[in-house]
Design a protein around this nucleic acid. Structure first.
Length: 783
DNA sequence: GCTTTACTTGTACCT
DNA sequence: ACAGGTACAAGTAAAGCG
């Protein structure tokens, strides 16, 4: 029979020494099915040294392991150059690395390739199957009680992808645990009980599994049973990969119970630190929240607020949990909070899952992996897939020395207020240049190779040469990505922005955009398999040339340049001249440049990468300043924002000064809410590792001492309290201080005044003026 | 011995 | 764990001062 199926998850098993691919799928009738293919064997490539006798090498390798089933000569390419390699096919996917190590030791071997491409992903790539995509093949139903699905099929033919944009109806379950702990939680020992496991589903079910006082055995068992009953396709949580699953797993181990939540199977940590659950896509929404740069402190509450969920989560103070639990009257409150939290997680998942699904499908990483994989790995998997299809050998990852190179140009802005300013910028400048100049590892011509200058593009400043023909790897990949995205954008125009189709396609074009834009950076990343520094250097050099030429054109047209950064240009807006500029650039540089914004009024200090502008619609757009920085107290940001508003909308610096004075007075009178005084800073390593003393580090150390759970990457919220000595010694975790403890002088002098003064100093305001009490109406003169 | 300056470390931002 | 370019705070060591 023929089966259409959508791939949710992929795994493999070895049965009686025979590996088989397990595709966990949803069919067109929304049945959960398992599709098994046992015809595919793992393999990798071996590049022999020159002049090595292939026949004798083959028998030599064959003798090394009984695991090897076949060795054959294969034609592949290495940076575009054809090479003959040996394809080593073997039985046990788990032996790949070990096998590679043995073979590498042979003196006839130059190098081994692709031994680190995991077996299930290898299967997907070789057969052009995509996670979160539809496929079709001929299958035969088989009976087995080993898997919890509606049907199990054995493939008769290798599956093929089919065009179908629809996403099956997925059953989603959100969960969250709360633990009883007075001294901090360790996911390694999990000494304290889980007091509640809350769940909510995307079809409105809500269930809580509550410990009987301090015994969580039944709660955990109940939860696992419920997961099996509800049988979700996706399990979502918030920080669930780094906490909830690990803690539950450890509790289950301690209690000697099974945490069977898969189809079937227990959760286990896998690639990129994600927790894998057989047959389901386990997704930690925190991974996707991390990519939202507008949210500075990535709590669930902040994410929910940003995404505009209906339910407003009640903040749970983790340190208060034991108190609430110990008092049976207060337990209800805790349970209510937890229930609220999972309902929020479900709502957040509704907003984030469409993007996750599209990202998975675009880059080719399984849905449960893709969020946990950093940007570099997402791009890499996309490139691996494309390169493999073209017969290109995937370079191995190896350690490289850091070698910084010159990047983009940033002009010093013209400080002050400017009226009527246009911003023009290049659309995807680096990808466009890589395509135009055919910049790629396989088109690179090394110095010792003689070529006619007409055959190559030569990068300015750095002098690297790239062949004009044939099209390089990056040109092919990037043109394809851009073409597909353009097609989606045209389709989008015909759709209702509220429709499901629109949301799916829009999420898809976003996924393509981020991938496209990250290719340049990926290539120059030390960890990249495809690392090729000349490509990055040359692209940046051509970028500098491009913006420089554009500035020249603008100047020749008589346009006044106010600021420029990398691929954007701020100019005094004169419609005909700007139109001419865009046209000239299009013709002469053959690059797309567009009018992005027109500011009615825009303000610059002397600093680069900072400006605040008033748009035609009345919106104020602030870039780079403290307002948009997460490491300033809210009061500081609020004051600066208000100052910008007064300056840009009313053009009355004196009014701004009065406003700042008022805030300072409030601050001194302890009238600013405590929450607005919290400063958040990221801990980039564990506190002991710091070389220097810093406020957020000392606050973190206090938290740790009190039994807090802290990891590198955590945001520390602290306040500066009264007293003598360094700030560092007066920084306290915000949960351990009160408004009365606050050092108001610090907040006035170090938080409120500097950001306000940075703006107002260009109007002649001095720092002292902020602290003057309102004695007379005019404190100073303006021109 | 105190203040000023120069430098280092650390964080977050921009394109 | 995508790149380089940039601003700025806080701590600290060195330099300047009398």
């Amino acid at each position: 029979m023929n089966l259409n199926f959508w791939i949710l998850d992929i795994a493999h098993e070895v049965k009686k020494e025979k590996p088989q691919i397990l595709l966990w799928c949803i069919d067109s009738n929304n049945k959960k099915v398992l599709v098994i293919d046992d015809t595919f064997l793992p393999y990798f490539y071996v590049l022999p040294k020159e002049k090595v006798d292939i026949k004798s090498l083959t028998s030599k390798i064959l003798a090394l392991s009984t695991n090897i089933t076949n060795i054959e000569l294969a034609d592949r390419k290495l940076f575009g150059k054809p090479v003959k390699v040996l394809k080593i096919t073997f039985r046990d996917p788990g032996q790949a690395i070990k096998l590679q190590k043995i073979i590498s030791k042979l003196e006839e071997i130059q190098e081994c390739y692709e031994y680190d491409v995991r077996y299930p992903l290898r299967y997907l790539i070789d057969n052009q199957l995509t996670p979160c995509g539809w496929h079709q093949t001929e299958v035969e139903e088989i009976k087995s009680k080993n898997y919890k699905v509606d049907a199990i099929y054995q493939v008769k033919k290798t599956p093929k992808p089919i065009e179908e944009a629809k996403i099956p109806r997925l059953k989603v379950l959100a969960f969250d645990i709360k633990c009883y702990s007075k001294r901090g939680l360790s996911t390694k020992t999990a000494a304290d009980p889980v007091i509640t496991i809350s769940t909510a589903t995307n079809n409105g079910l809500e269930k809580q599994f509550i410990a009987t006082d301090y015994n969580d055995k039944k709660a955990i068992q109940g939860f696992a049973k419920f997961v099996q009953e509800f049988d979700p396709d996706c399990i979502v949580g918030y920080e669930s990969n780094i906490f909830d699953w690990l803690y539950l797993g450890q509790r289950a181990k301690n209690l000697k119970i099974k945490l069977d939540v898969g189809r079937p199977g227990e959760p286990h940590t896998s690639m990129y630190g994600h927790v894998s659950i057989a047959g389901r896509a386990n997704i930690d929404l925190y991974d996707f929240a991390e990519d939202i740069v507008d949210i500075k402190v990535k709590t669930l509450e902040n994410i929910a607020e940003f995404l505009g969920t209906k339910i407003k989560p009640l903040k749970v103070d983790e340190t208060k949990i034991p108190e609430l639990w110990d008092d049976k009257k207060l337990r209800e409150k805790l349970l209510e909070q937890s229930k609220n939290e999972v309902k929020t997680i479900i709502e957040v998942s509704e907003k984030l899952l469409p993007f996750a699904i599209q990202l998975s499908n675009v880059v080719g990483l399984p849905l449960d992996h893709v969020g946990a994989a950093a940007m570099g790995f997402r791009v890499e998997w996309y490139l691996i897939r494309q390169a493999s299809l073209e017969g290109e050998l995937i370079p191995s990852r190896f350690e490289k020395q850091y070698f910084p190179y010159r990047g983009a140009i940033v002009l010093a802005p013209k400080p002050g207020i400017h009226e009527n300013v246009a911003v023009v910028d290049f659309s995807s400048m680096y990808p466009a240049l890589m395509i135009q100049k055919n910049i790629s590892p396989d088109t690179f011509v090394s110095e010792d190779v003689g070529v006619k200058s007409t055959e190559v593009n030569i990068a300015p400043e750095v002098g690297y040469k790239f062949r004009k023909v044939p099209d390089g790897f990056y040109k092919r990949v990037l043109s394809d990505l851009i073409k597909v995205r353009r097609k989606i954008k045209t389709q989008l125009k015909k759709l209702d922005p509220k429709s499901i189709e629109y949301r799916i396609l829009d999420a898809r074009q976003q996924a393509i955009k981020t991938t496209t834009n990250a290719v340049y950076g990926y290539n120059a990343w030390l960890g990249a398999k495809f690392y090729f520094k000349q490509v990055g250097e040359a692209t940046a050099a051509w970028g500098r040339e491009t913006i420089t030429k554009t500035i020249e054109v603008a100047k020749k047209l008589g346009l006044q340049i106010i600021y420029a950064d990398t691929d954007s240009l701020f100019i005094k807006y004169e419609k005909p001249k700007v139109e001419k500029l865009i046209e000239t650039v299009r013709e002469k540089l053959e690059l797309e440049i567009e009018l992005k914004d027109i500011y009615e009024r825009i303000f610059f200090t002397e600093a680069k990468k900072k400006y605040a502008g008033l748009l035609k619609d009345g919106r104020i757009d602030i870039t780079g300043f403290e307002v948009v920085r997460g490491d300033w107290a809210e009061i500081a940001r609020e004051v600066q924002e208000k100052v910008f508003e007064i300056i840009l909308k009313e053009k009355t610096p004196e009014k701004a000064v009065v406003y700042v004075q008022e805030i300072i007075q409030k601050m001194q009178a302890n009238q600013i809410p405590y929450e607005e005084l919290i400063i958040w800073k990221t801990l980039t390593k564990s506190p002991e590792e710091y070389e220097i003393a810093a406020p957020h580090v000392s606050a973190a150390k206090i938290l740790l001492k009190a039994g807090g759970r802290l990891d590198a990457g955590d945001k520390i919220g602290f306040v500066i309290t009264k007293g003598a000595g360094r700030l560092t010694d007066r920084a306290k975790p915000y949960s351990m201080a009160k408004l009365e403890d606050i050092d108001t002088d610090y907040y006035v002098n170090n938080q409120i005044i500097p950001p306000a003064h940075r703006i107002l100093e260009s109007f002649g305001v001095t720092e002292d003026q902020f602290k003057m009490v309102k004695k007379q109406k005019t404190l100073f003169e303006f021109k």
